[in-house]
């Protein structure tokens, strides 16, 4: 395996009632890169996310993850919250905002190890008030970047589809993680918002060295920021390379257009 990888997916397979959703997929995500994952519908992109984040364990293969100290650990079959705690954050393709929480509260959920989340500390306000104020500031600044301050105290049911999608992604970005798995973050966003989101992702990547794995159907936009692209087709890896190589790969074109 490469030394600069943060996540190594090694020959991972997943079956659903005999149907092969993933077959022997091997992918390496280099650290501090923006990696795109594309492929036609039903090619196993979301299944791969689900396997990485522990929604279900893979039937075969291993998933290795490099911790901060530079050691690779086996995270195959860990529970979703344990994967999250290791610094891998995912967003959902179909947004799963919490309907009875305001937008602000939805954003405040993510940061890990909040003081006020333990039963004992939640009873003593002085323990968590300061941290809460900082988090509110962080959330407000994030919303300000996208000119969405006016929706801070709205409920998800009052938002437009694009805003829901945006908040789903921003919720992931609320807390510093090392690897983000974004499932179609640009779907449903207008071009202006989509570009601001891409700019934010690019900034986080360049300034803070965060790694992104992005599933996206708007390939043109993705190509603008991605360093490397993997193409999945029918559950197996079809091609990989830099955006330039992928665009010119006849196999990829065939998979998308159909044979």
């Amino acid at each position: 395996m490469k030394e600069d990888a943060i996540l190594v997916i090694n020959e991972v397979s997943k079956y659903f009632e005999g149907l092969k959703a993933l077959s022997k997929v091997t992918i390496e995500i280099p650290e501090k890169c923006i990696v795109g994952l594309i492929g036609p519908n039903g090619s196993g992109k979301t299944t791969l996310f689900n396997v990485i984040t522990g929604f279900y364990p893979p039937d075969e293969g291993k998933i290795l993850y490099k911790t901060l100290s530079g050691i690779f650990v086996d995270i195959t079959g860990l529970n979703p919250h344990e994967v999250f705690k290791m610094g891998v954050i995912r967003t959902f393709q179909i947004p799963r905002l919490f309907p009875s929480l305001t937008v602000l509260e939805n954003l405040l959920i993510t940061p890990l190890n909040q003081r006020g989340e333990s039963v004992v500390n939640s009873l003593r306000r002085s323990k968590w008030l300061r941290e809460e104020e900082e988090l509110v500031h962080r959330a407000v600044n994030l919303l300000k970047t996208f000119n969405r301050l006016n929706i801070a105290s709205k409920y998800p049911s009052e938002l437009s589809i694009g805003d829901i999608k945006l908040i789903e992604t921003l919720r992931g970005l609320m807390t510093p993680a090392r690897l983000y798995l974004l499932d179609e973050p640009l779907a449903g966003l207008d071009l202006h918002t989509a570009r601001s989101l891409l700019r934010l992702i690019w900034k986080l990547n360049k300034n803070h060295g965060l790694t992104f794995l992005i599933v996206e159907h708007r390939v043109d936009l993705l190509m603008e920021i991605a360093d490397f692209i993997y193409v999945l087709h029918n559950g197996s890896l079809l091609a990989s390379g830099t955006p330039g190589e992928i665009i010119n790969d006849p196999k990829v074109v065939r998979a998308y257009i159909g044979e």
Partner: peptide
Amino acid sequence: IGRKVAGP
């Protein structure tokens, strides 16, 4: 919890 694998 994350079994360690031989480092590179």
